[in-house]
Amino acid sequence: MSGILELGIMLFHVMVVIIILFLVPIPFTWMERKVAGHIQQRLGPMRVGWHGVLQPLADGIKLLTKEDIIPDRADRLLFKIAPIISLVPPFAVFVAVPFADNLLLSDMNIGLLYILAVAGLGIYGVIFGGWASNSKYSLLGSIRSCAQLISYEIPMGFAVIGVMMLSQSMNLSDIVNAQADTWNIVYQPLGFFVFFIAGLAEAQRVPFDLAEAEGDLGAGYHTEYSGMRFSYFMISEYLVMLTISVLCVILFFGGWHGFLLPLPPLLWFTLKVGFFVYLFMWIRFTFPRYRYDQLMSIGWKVLFPLSLANILVTGFFIV
């Protein structure tokens, strides 16, 4: 009986997190458009609700009522499940994320490894979506993002090793608690730098958004998607951005630990994550996009050696 009760409580918690994650892209799209507008001396959405806060809802209704077009020669099954496949991993990642002290779904010993592994699965949605569309733009876009994600996952994984060496654990709660006094950014500035750049590429944000370089590829792997399936891809992209921000905060900026102001831990965590989300948007509307060969050489010739050097230096200091 108690087993069923526990299961029920667990399911309830999972549902709460899933609902919150589904709602998160709504303020994010609004924020992105507002940041875009103000950086370009515009106003952004202003007409729906106060300063356009209800604009994402209006967009959502529009996308829901749009026709769901499947191209004639598309692989229908893959085409239909690709958005869902790309939607699942960003949600699964948040099982292991500690939002505050003891406020997490599952306290895994290998939480960090789990997050990196599951986040890597999101690439399947991109591959399937690009392949099933049977369009050259989609295929090229998905091939680009595959190569990009695989190349950048390596420096990302190596950059995290420095943090693991410092806290002697892969448990995210332990990693955060090890930063109670000094945040990891103080010891691992190079690690953070590599992690953040690789994170930009993982989230496929400017300046590494070659997969959807609209100048040369239409919209990349979701060129042929419309309506709700398209919005699944968008939701998953925003959640990946959120994941990278959350990881930056947990691994390098002390998670829920605050400084100066004694705010509640969850609020501290949200504020830090919000800053990183803003940083992503700020960067997006400042920099142009890299060329594809530049992207690859940055990944393999700069970030990869830097992450290895980071491990080496960290190792020397620990021993």
Partner: peptide, 21 residues
């Protein structure tokens, strides 16, 4: 420098004329 410039623009006066609202 680029980030600083865009941040300055973020708080600059907007040029949007809110016609017709």
């Amino acid at each position: 420098a680029g980030l600083r410039l865009t941040f300055k623009y973020m708080f600059a006066k907007h040029i949007t004329m809110q016609y017709p609202d």
